[in-house]
Design a protein around this nucleic acid. Structure first.
Lengths: 132, 132
DNA sequence: GTGTATGCAAAGCTTTTGCATAGGT
DNA sequence: ACCTATGCAAAAGCTTTGCATACAC
């Protein structure tokens, strides 16, 4: 595995982010360091990083597909309907062994909250739907 | 809004299903009644039914995009990694007011469990990944 | 007869893949 | 010098849209 400017740019993007990012966000931010970086390269690197356990891919109906570092432990997410950003929530409100129908066994779960984040509530731009 | 064979076929599909269905499943089953039905028609009708509150669209990273009748009340879903089917789970293990960071307000949430369903556990086809 | 819903085909998006080559080792 | 990772372009899903026409009313 070779050290390229593109690969380093992508890793830096995640080091400098405190929330999960979309492919588009990753590409935009990576271009600040590696201006020529191509979408295909971003996808290829994200896939490699997920396969090697460095990143995790998360997905919800409203938040879409996002990537985040895998080191943060078990936690869940909050998607703001106003600014469209997704945030990490510390901890997990669920018991390890949920009540499931007879014979069903769960080994993992994914939980998304939807609502308004602190920043959007403060600014009061209720009418705004998604960034800028 | 006109009553067409295609529209009725789609509604019947959901009346006869006990679990959320993918667009592909809806199309296949609707063709049993309306053989000529087209994918575009399926999408258009699903959109209309969702907009009018009859269906709900759900989505997760592993289960993909699914539709189900909206009358079932608040509940969550279980996705079987072996057969690929998604099932309804009765009830909700979460409190209405979760602990969120200062200033955040949630109005809804979405929860997916992942694991093995009763049927797949019984049959023991652990190696199988997705139907048939 | 009028006008909406459908089928078909084309086009949008997002993501993946083939291939030549730039660049890391 | 070798060979991997990149850029570009094409292609492969999935979903939406334009347009002529079938068909519900």
């Amino acid at each position: 595995m070779r050290t390229t400017k593109q690969k380093q740019a992508i890793e830096t993007v995640f080091l400098n982010s405190d929330r999960p990012l979309s492919v588009e966000e990753v590409t935009e931010r990576a271009r600040e360091t590696a201006p020529s970086i191509n979408t295909a390269t971003v996808y290829r690197n994200l896939k490699t990083l997920v396969d090697s356990g460095i990143l995790t891919k998360i997905c919800s109906g409203q938040a879409g597909t996002l990537y985040e570092p895998n080191h943060s432990g078990h936690h869940h997410h909050f998607h703001c309907r106003t600014c469209g950003k997704t945030f990490d929530l510390p901890g997990c409100p669920l018991s390890v062994q949920p009540k499931l129908p007879e014979g069903f066994t769960a080994d993992s779960h994914e939980l998304f909250y939807y609502g308004i984040c602190a920043e959007c509530a403060r600014v009061g731009v209720d009418q705004r739907v998604y960034p800028e």
